[in-house]
Amino acid sequence: MRRFWAALTFYTALPLGRAADLQFEGIAAWLPAVGLCLGGILFLASLLLQVFPAGVRAALLVALWVVLTGGLHLDGVADTADGLAANLHTSSEQSASNSHRLQVMSDSHTGAYGVLALGLVLLLKFAALSSLQVWPLLLLVPAWGRWGQLLAIALYPYLREQGSARFLKDSTSLPGSLWPGTLLLGVTTAGLGGSGILAWRPLLLWTLGAALGALAVGHWIYRQLGGHTGDTYGATVEWSEAIALLWGSLIKLS
């Protein structure tokens, strides 16, 4: 529970008190649980915001989503987009190495591609939430996004020797760090299906799509860069969430 509390403190902007005495090694294993907590808050908020039109409700939920995480992962979206786009304007010699991309990603300034990526991911979330009918899925969306980040941490090399997220990679192991979060997601999904809140067939189809989307995002970034950084961990969360929401918007109430 101390590591779970540390994970909540590290990955969210929730007012949980001082973090000085917490140990953050191994907190990546708790990422899906953090996602479920965020999903629970967002789902409850969606119920309270039913009085608003669909577009306003979606905008308020996106804003709350950003506030709950302190924009932590959105910064990674922007930096990753700038880094991946850097080679579009460099020579072939520079394109042969990732050093230039990593240098761009470490720049504190946000470039044009970073702004475009931020706008696009927020727009996709807003559009999906505007047409979402099966709102209990919102409980699971942040969890699958962070499951994708956990996979990226566990499966792929870390590209910086002394990066700010290096400790996440060093304290995450296979398969020990993967199964608790995966099991928790499975139990929660089974609970939603077994309680009759969601029909089994669309729930399982959505779960498969969300899981494949989370896996694909992390793997695609790995193929582009040869590994991950703290920025790409954040980008993996945001794009995995967007895919899960878009997939969920296709599910209609019976």
Rank of each mutant, 00 (worst) to 15 (best):
S108N: 09
L8I: 13
G39D: 08
A128Q: 04
D75T: 11
W220F: 14
N98A: 15
G194T: 04
A199K: 08
R166W: 03
R223V: 12
I197F: 09
G226Y: 07
G226Q: 11
L178Q: 06
A28V: 14
R166N: 06
G119Y: 12
A86I: 01
I197C: 09
L225Y: 02
G145L: 07
A45K: 06
R57N: 12
D107Y: 06
L204I: 15
V115N: 12
L253Y: 06
D79P: 08
A214E: 00
V66Q: 10
L118G: 01
W144V: 09
L48T: 12
G17F: 11
A45Y: 05
W200F: 14
I251Y: 05
Q224S: 15
L159W: 01
V237Y: 00
L178R: 00
G218M: 02
W147K: 08
G145D: 09
T12P: 00
L68Y: 07
A29S: 13
W65E: 11
T9S: 15
G186W: 08
L246C: 12
G213Q: 01
Q149T: 11
L44F: 11
I27Q: 02
D231V: 09
L42D: 02
R18A: 14
N87Y: 05
L155E: 00
L84S: 04
Q224M: 15
H228P: 00
L138A: 04
R166Y: 09
A210T: 08
G119N: 10
W179V: 13
R2S: 15
R2M: 13
Q50P: 02
L60R: 01
L178G: 04
L31N: 00
S171A: 15
T80S: 15
G114Q: 00
G234N: 08
V141D: 01
G163V: 10
R101F: 05
S249T: 08
L198N: 07
W5M: 13
R18M: 04
L132D: 11
G227P: 04
A54N: 11
V67S: 09
V62K: 01
L31Y: 06
L129C: 11
L192Q: 05
I153K: 03
L203T: 07
Q23R: 15
H73G: 01
G196Y: 10
A214I: 05
A28P: 03
L138D: 03
R2Y: 10
S91R: 14
L140R: 03
S240L: 02
A244N: 01
L184Y: 10
T12D: 09
V51N: 12
R166L: 12
F167K: 07
G26E: 11
A19T: 11
V104Y: 01
S92C: 08
G76I: 03
L138C: 10
S173K: 15
G226L: 03
Y156G: 10
L192Y: 04
A143G: 07
L151S: 05
L208F: 14
A58N: 05
S240W: 00
L139D: 02
